[in-house]
């Protein structure tokens, strides 16, 4: 008997542009996904509760004006506030990829949701411009992120961003970095520096491990056909992240079934 397919909501609209491949990634990994315009979910916030997980995809929401992710974060905070908070409080998995990561950071959800003020940001790349380059991601020991649990080998994924450099509030970088390390909130670092990110951080999760933000694009490498030299084995390295979360949700379901039985 097959397990129920977890259902993900993938946001689109306002300049988001990776919704299709993000939804396809969930489906390819055995889940289901609905692409929904942000305005439609704002019109009926109660719909959010029906989903098992949420993805804020990459792109250029609002053209990156006022800072990447800034206006989308304002829109979510002011127009979707409570429904969104409830979703996160229930520890339903949330992923923000690239622009989505920037949105989650501007929302304050990553990496310190309980801090009074924002302490971390994604600054413009150190070299000053956009970059499209494949990167090697080294999984970090002790990460509590449910999306990346069990990943031991380095992943190759494309990074495509202009504002991906993790920085911390003035004078607190070392302490905040240590705090993130201690609480297992750094799932991936770049193997080599590409944007000047502090300690080469490429991804962050919240203290519960359910909310993941990462700059590189796992949804863009689900198939060998998209590998840099187009001659690798199936599947692509991004698959494991989507496969992980679907197994995680199905595992929860399985254990729930067991308990009920």
């Amino acid at each position: 008997m097959g397990l129920r397919k977890p259902l993900f909501l993938v946001l689109c609209g306002d300049g988001i542009n990776c919704e299709r491949e993000t939804a396809s990634a969930f489906v390819h990994a055995g889940g289901d996904a609905h692409i929904m315009h942000i305005n439609d979910i704002l019109a009926a916030p109660e719909k959010l509760a029906a989903y098992d997980g949420l993805a804020v995809p990459g792109g250029f929401s609002f053209g990156d004006e006022l800072g990447s992710g800034q206006i989308m974060a304002l829109k979510i905070r002011h127009k979707l506030g409570e429904a969104f908070s409830r979703f996160v409080e229930k520890q339903k998995p949330v992923i923000g990829i690239c622009n989505g990561f920037q949105v989650l950071v501007k929302l304050g959800l990553l990496p310190f949701p309980d801090a009074r003020e924002r302490l971390c940001a994604l600054a413009p790349n150190a070299h000053g411009g956009f970059i499209d380059r494949w990167v090697t991601l080294a999984p970090q020991a002790g990460s509590r992120c449910i999306w990346t649990a069990g990943i031991e080998n380095a992943l190759r994924l494309p990074a495509r961003h202009g504002e991906g450099r993790i920085v911390f509030a003035d004078g607190q970088a070392d302490a905040l970095h240590k705090k993130l390390q201690d609480s297992g909130q750094i799932p991936f670092c770049y193997e080599t520096d590409i944007n000047g990110s502090y300690a080469r951080i490429a991804a962050l999760c919240d203290p519960t491990g359910h909310v993941l933000g990462l700059m590189p694009h796992p949804e863009a490498f689900m198939h060998a056909e998209c590998a840099p030299n187009a001659r690798e084995e199936q599947p692509g390295d991004g698959f494991i992240i989507f496969d992980n979360i679907i197994r995680h949700l199905q595992g929860q379901e399985k254990s729930l079934e067991k308990r009920i039985a």
Partner: peptide, 12 residues
């Protein structure tokens, strides 16, 4: 490299 050459995840 300033151009995104693989958004839409279909650049072979």
């Amino acid at each position: 490299r300033d151009y995104d050459h693989e958004v839409q995840a279909a650049t072979h």
